[in-house]
Amino acid sequence: MAPTPDPKRRALGKGLETLLPQRPATPPPSPVAAPIVQSGQPLEIQVDKIDRNPFQTRTRFDEAQLNDLANSIKASGVVQPIVVRKLLNSDRFQLITGERRLLASKKAGKTHIPSIVREVSDEQAMEMTIVENLQRADLNPMEQARAYQRLAHDFKMTQEQMATRTGKERASVANFLRLLKLPEVVQNKVENGELSFGHARTLLALDSPESIAAAAQKVQALSMSVRQTETYVHGLMNPETKQNKPVAPTEQIDPNVKEAQQTLQRSLGLKVKIEDKKGKGRVIIEYSGIEDFDAILEALGSRKS
């Protein structure tokens, strides 16, 4: 027969258990261990668990460049991690920056991609996406214009603040925003690469959507350079110079004054006239709305917008 346990020894054993540190029981391993997500920590994340960025302002990707990047990734991998954020109550992630790298990785047949996880709000994710895109050189002019517009509308940024965040000149920001005043048909030409940013900025000097659209059609049909477009637009804005009327010597424009006048027109996108008499005169800037007027004030440094 087995000896009966001594109750005192049982009590003593319990007392020792209360004094000695307990070793926690090791939990059984989970059959599918989810990665521990920490903000800023590089992870290898499955590409099929990363959703597209809903705040992306870029709409077009050069297929040839994407194939080149895919070939590079096949050979050397992804050098710079993409940035994502964890979706709540889900094992999925949402892309913030690095869409080209993600698309190229899929083309290269990669199942995982190095990623940095950030804990950011919708607003922060949107701002990071837009600013990162604007710092790149391969956005078309209309994509840049819409990106600046979103920063102004959604984040109430001034043009000065946008310039600081993206490393651009304030005047450059203003010129891109002005592209949104172009008729939609002309915006499409700029977005498709049929007209350049220089062409579009020059056409903005015309005073109506109809005249801009008609001029854009002719510029494209005749394959005009930006300089030729400037001359053509100047002629449309100053039809009196085409008439065969004798011009008095006093009405002759000094070449330096004329060049300054054209420079101002290109910079402001508005009709500018300089009346100069022996170094004295006046500068006349025509505007067709409050937005044009505000742009003049900003250019002169009289107002923050």
Rank of each mutant, 00 (worst) to 15 (best):
K218T: 13
E184S: 13
S196H: 11
E169V: 10
L195M: 11
E194F: 08
E184K: 13
T166S: 06
E143G: 04
S172Y: 11
E143C: 11
F155L: 14
A215P: 09
Q220H: 07
A200K: 01
Q161R: 01
E169K: 10
D154C: 15
V190Q: 02
E184I: 15
Q149E: 13
I212F: 03
N175K: 10
R201T: 14
A171T: 06
A200V: 07
G198Y: 06
H153W: 05
L180W: 12
Q220A: 12
A213N: 03
A214W: 05
Q161F: 01
S172M: 05
S211W: 02
K181A: 14
E191W: 08
L195Y: 02
D207T: 13
Q149D: 15
M157P: 15
E210S: 14
L204E: 00
V185I: 12
L179D: 00
P209G: 02
F155V: 12
A171Q: 10
I212A: 06
Q149P: 10
Q220L: 09
A221S: 06
N188P: 00
A152D: 09
K218R: 11
L180P: 01
L206D: 01
E210P: 03
R165A: 13
K181R: 15
V185M: 13
S172A: 07
S172V: 14
R150V: 13
A147S: 08
D154P: 08
T164M: 12
V219T: 13
P141V: 05
A147R: 04
A213D: 03
A145D: 02
R178C: 11
P209Y: 03
T166I: 09
L177D: 03
E210C: 08
L179S: 01
E184Q: 14
L204P: 03
T202C: 05
L179Y: 00
S208C: 12
S208T: 14
R178H: 09
V185R: 07
H153L: 15
L222E: 15
M157T: 13
E169P: 06
I212T: 02
Y148C: 08
M162Y: 13
L151D: 03
P141S: 10
L206H: 01
N192T: 08
A221C: 09
Q144G: 07
A145T: 03
R150D: 12
A216R: 01
V186E: 01
T202R: 00
Q144K: 10
A174P: 00
L203Q: 01
D154H: 04
P209E: 07
L151P: 04
